[in-house]
């Protein structure tokens, strides 16, 4: 756990909601927080290095970028979890992978540049892991995506 001071928390709450798309965005934040631009840049750099900020700047909508994606669920025998996870995580298009407390115990998201490449990736995953029970659950409608957490 990284220790955050009040200025870090204020800064995180502001930048989670958005960075101004202006020539000097960090100066704009500095004015809002009554600190120097250099301090904003230094703090953001530190929060990124510490992993508190995972990403700064543009968050793309993969569908509007033209990518195709799906959520897959797998039934992996407990003794094969680390081996299967290593195979799946090795695919560049796999962005998230979680173990969950269900018979379908491994849940991962895959993105690819086209529907063909997406299906090919899933076939490769089936082939390389040897796991037969795999559900592919593509999204039909997105009602909400992403959230801001109030940092107190």
């Amino acid at each position: 756990m990284t220790i955050l001071d009040q200025t870090d928390r204020d800064l995180l709450n502001i930048v989670q909601n958005g960075l101004p798309v202006v020539p000097e965005p960090y100066r704009a934040l500095a004015e809002e927080l009554h600190v120097s631009e250099e301090e904003i840049i230094r703090r953001l750099g530190r929060l990124k290095d510490a992993g508190v900020i995972r990403r700064l700047g543009a968050v793309f909508d993969s569908r509007r970028v033209g990518y195709k994606g799906t959520l897959c669920a797998l039934k992996v025998p407990p003794e094969q979890i680390s081996e299967v996870a290593a195979i799946i995580n090795g695919f560049r298009g796999v962005t998230h992978n979680y173990l969950r407390d269900h018979e379908f115990n491994m849940w991962f998201t895959v993105l690819a540049e086209s529907q063909d490449k997406l299906e090919q990736t899933i076939e490769n995953i089936r082939g390389q892991t040897g796991i037969k029970e795999l559900l592919s659950l593509p999204a039909e409608n997105v009602f909400k995506i992403g959230v801001h957490f109030k940092i107190t």
């Binding site: 930048v15 992993g51 990403r55 700064l56 909508d61 509007r64």
Partner: peptide
């Protein structure tokens, strides 16, 4: 156009409680 969903910081939520 929604190609960029938002422009800001993505915070790792486990680190904020």
């Amino acid at each position: 156009k929604g190609v960029i969903r938002r422009f800001g910081a993505v915070v790792k939520h486990q680190d904020v409680g």
